[in-house]
């Protein structure tokens, strides 16, 4: 791991009206590694992720992305830099089709004025079919509503979307919550395949078994601090459960 880290988090703090949610977190994420981020509720995982994906601003400290200091003003900035986040509640609109969900906020336009214009629906359909096939998910039609898909299929589409937009870092926030066993295996398979594609993965989960199954490195957080940061082969579940 001599390569420059893709994300460097330095002394990051976050206060919520009286609550010190992040107490000086310093953490590096390296290119092409999958990091498991574990911790109890309220440990600060979500806050850290929200800051990395541009949803919240830190109260102190800083982030560098590919060596450059960045400060994301919204999720859009983070996405444009190449950080894509997949949330536990699904970052999909169930009442819309797969093709439309793939391109929400980044629609290809045939022509437009001032950012508003006519959708290139043909391109949307073709590219979403290809993107979904790339993650080895086979769906009959890009016009099917996302609401009709199973939880695992939805996460698959979200991952396909992140890959299609060439993200460099993919943050998966509890992607296996509420999924059946078979579906969970599918999602873990997606996470494992990230390495082969040169994408840095940050996998957040309550379930330590899931994290051990598909990550290279474990980071445990408790009470707003990083309490453990080791390669998977240098630690075990008992040690992690101890520090949490």
């Amino acid at each position: 791991m001599t390569a420059q880290p893709i994300i460097q988090v330095k002394d990051l703090h976050k206060w919520y009206s009286g609550v010190h949610a992040l107490k000086g977190v310093t953490l590096d994420f390296h290119p092409n590694e999958t990091v498991g981020l574990v911790g109890d509720n309220g440990a600060g995982k979500s806050t850290l992720i929200n800051i990395l994906s541009g949803i919240q601003a830190p109260s102190g400290g800083g982030i560098t992305f590919e060596g450059r200091p960045v400060s994301f003003k919204g999720p859009r900035d983070a996405m444009e830099a190449g950080i894509e986040t997949i949330y536990q509640y699904n970052s999909m609109v169930p009442t819309m089709s797969i093709a439309r969900n793939m391109f929400i906020g980044r629609e290809p336009l045939r022509w437009g004025i001032g950012g508003i214009g006519v959708l290139d629906t043909k391109k949307m359909a073709e590219e979403s079919v290809r993107a979904i096939a790339d993650v080895d998910l086979h769906l009959r039609s890009p016009d099917a509503l996302v609401g009709e898909l199973s939880g695992g299929q939805r996460q698959g589409v979200a991952i396909a979307r992140a890959m299609h937009f060439k993200s460099k870092v993919m943050i998966l926030d509890e992607p296996t919550n509420h999924l059946a066993v078979k579906e969970t295996q599918k999602v873990l398979g997606f996470v494992q395949s990230l390495k082969g594609l040169g994408i840095t993965g940050i996998f957040i989960s309550h379930n330590i078994h899931h994290v051990f199954e598909c990550c290279d490195r474990m980071v445990a957080m408790a009470r707003g601090e990083v309490v453990l940061d080791k390669r998977v082969e240098d630690t075990n579940m008992d040690e992690i459960l101890d520090v949490l």
Partner: peptide
């Protein structure tokens, strides 16, 4: 689904 719309920027 407002949260999804917001998280997609």
């Amino acid at each position: 689904f407002l949260p999804a719309a917001e998280s997609m920027g």
